[in-house]
Amino acid sequence: MASTDLDTSKAYSPWRQRMGMWDRKASPYLYIAPFFIVFAIFGLFPIIYTAVISLMDWDTIRNSGEYIGFANFDYVLNDRKFWVSLRNTFSIFLLSSIPQLIIATFIAAMLDHHLKARTFWRMGVLVPYVVMPVAVALIFSQLYADEYGLVNHWLGMVGIDPIAWHKEVIPSHVAIASMVNFRWIGYNALIMLAAMQAIPRELYEAAALDGASKARRFFSVTLPQIRPTFIFVIITSTIGGLQIFDEPRMFDTAGNGGADQQWLTITMYMYNTGWGELNFGRASAIAWLLFLIIIVFGLLNFWLTRRFVSSDQSGSK
């Protein structure tokens, strides 16, 4: 269409015409160029550099290394700690993400009602998000102290034996997941709330006229309508969950993930290898493995998203 436009207006000089063409073709690239230039410097270059270092026995202080092929990858893939940390990462991820999404959706649905002092409640759920993760971790680590912690004290009052939060695998994951949830539930609830508010109210009215109960309206109208937002929240919490660091790091005072690696996550393993042991070759290898894992998960998410979106379209027809 644009070309017919140009054809009729011969008044333009060929030079201006060419400039106009060029402008239309090139400027979008020019406008997005800054992002990609910055990305190349701070994203792409470190990624490639990390790949180079991961193939070396690297001395970061003398900034030199010896090429050793895939020995770092070989070591990491054969290290028990790597697999334990992978297990822990996924366990904490599942224990945090699933309850988080359910509770956040529930809270959002409640906030979607006509409450008094609506803004107060809506801002209220965001308060934990504003608190520094380190502060959260400090408070929770007091709650979860094995002998004299409040949680075990409360459990004792209802006759439950104290739980070894810092010694057993699953309890430690539950405790860490609770910190993550505390921080992120309100944030996700607000995102879901925004999606819910965008749902046309006629849908609810129509459903109500058809005799749908409140629960039915939630499951048949609200949930399908916020599906894209749901997927967005899942993707962001997946990326965040695979990189979980602050909470497990702060869970005990040593910050090494427990004596038996009970709550060592993959980013902590990388950090300890790099900064603890000053073995940046191996740490780079771990970084790349984590990168690959996230890519696999990204593709999985992409596939799931397409499935969801297409089923969404067929549903609305």
Partner: peptide
């Protein structure tokens, strides 16, 4: 353990970033 303790109090930076931005 003295250092480790202090280390943990300090360690909140993103590890992923730490490993990648040494250059």
């Amino acid at each position: 353990s003295f250092t480790r303790r202090k280390k943990m109090l300090a360690a909140t930076a993103g590890a992923a970033v730490a490993a990648l931005t040494l250059a």
